[in-house]
Design a protein around this nucleic acid. Sequence first.
DNA 1: CGTTTAATTGAGGAAAGTCAAGTGAAGTGG
DNA 2: CCACTTCACTTGACTTTCCTCAATTAAACG
Lengths: 216, 216
Amino acid sequence: MRQLLSSEERARLAVISSIVRFKKGDVIYHQGHRANAVFNIISGVVKAYQTTSDGSKHITAFLFPDDLFGLSDEGWYTNSTMTVTPVIAYQLPMSALRSRLSRDAGLEFHVICKLCQELRQAQHHAFLLARRHALSKMALFLQLLEQLQAARDEPTTEIYLPMNRSDIGEYVGTSLEAVSRAFRGLTATGIIEFRDRSHLKILDRDAFEKIASETN
Amino acid sequence: MRQLLSSEERARLAVISSIVRFKKGDVIYHQGHRANAVFNIISGVVKAYQTTSDGSKHITAFLFPDDLFGLSDEGWYTNSTMTVTPVIAYQLPMSALRSRLSRDAGLEFHVICKLCQELRQAQHHAFLLARRHALSKMALFLQLLEQLQAARDEPTTEIYLPMNRSDIGEYVGTSLEAVSRAFRGLTATGIIEFRDRSHLKILDRDAFEKIASETN
DNA sequence: CGTTTAATTGAGGAAAGTCAAGTGAAGTGG
DNA sequence: CCACTTCACTTGACTTTCCTCAATTAAACG
């Protein structure tokens, strides 16, 4: 099951949703604010993050087309979200979604599936963050992006990096300089190749997988 | 809501469950095996982990009394679990649980809550792993243990460490030596105090919180 | 085309990893 | 009950890696 919603369910929800547009860098909602709506990305990329008291950001996830976000228990957003690119999304009022859910068992099941998927992603993220070496972290990160691209039926000859180096660093748990150096390392050894700053290709798949699977 | 199940629901499930006992170090189930049963801890502590191809372990969670584990989509366990202490648990056959769930909307809701809770924990784990300094990781880890103790209505004057240093290291993403040194550091500065290897007290709460909240 | 922002690169220092030795605790068998 | 074995933990010395700060280059934008 690739998509959260079947086209039929999507249509049912479209009735109660509106389409919203954000430009790059817009904050969609803030952590701690009342959760009034849930969003379903049509196009673009969003980052979910948490800000600590000392001002540093920790990115918990990148969200792509078809991803649902803004779900919250207790009715308050548990993180903040900001667009990484221009974004078009469905905005579903929480109240409408709630009444829809209670009458629609199929939808509820899909929400459970969505939660399972989010859980798997969070665990994968933890797995990535546990790596000691920046090279290994980056390889796992690129693997993730590639898998997500494939899941969206996009071509995987190239990996697309919509986010900047700083965002990558905040996701993989290193400085942005370390991200840059890791890319340089992978490029220098001929494992990857950049077409431009946000497009790369994996040249040596074996060496790439080896680095990704190395704990050390 | 502290417990996954109300005592009433617990009673309903008890009918279809059996009680199993494990001694310290027993493997409850293996990653990749067919998921035949779900477990609900009565007493003791369990660790959930994933083994990488090169033999290293990554601990994804520690599970305590009232925790439910062994849930899996697709019917295959996605991680391995091993006891950290002797454990007594309810074992619920998957088939029985499945038929129970479809007839019992309240239970399904609780499973959703359980998933949300697991998700929050996984995100907290990622948050912890993103910390650069071992001291900060350890402080967050101790905070987590303390919160879980409080959630179980156990006294929080002392924090109990049922797992060994190696397990802690595999959870917080450092070597076991680093765990030891971090404890030494916190002890030397009078922030914590050990009664024995697995019991400690927080003496300087302010300094403790400060370290826990420091990103750096 | 100039200005601003993003990314790269270098040098020095701090932190944690690794390896190895030593200490302490717990459990076993005589 | 005590000596002995074993395992868990601690501690030290050395090495590696990454972070920080700073300077430079490259790209994006008005």
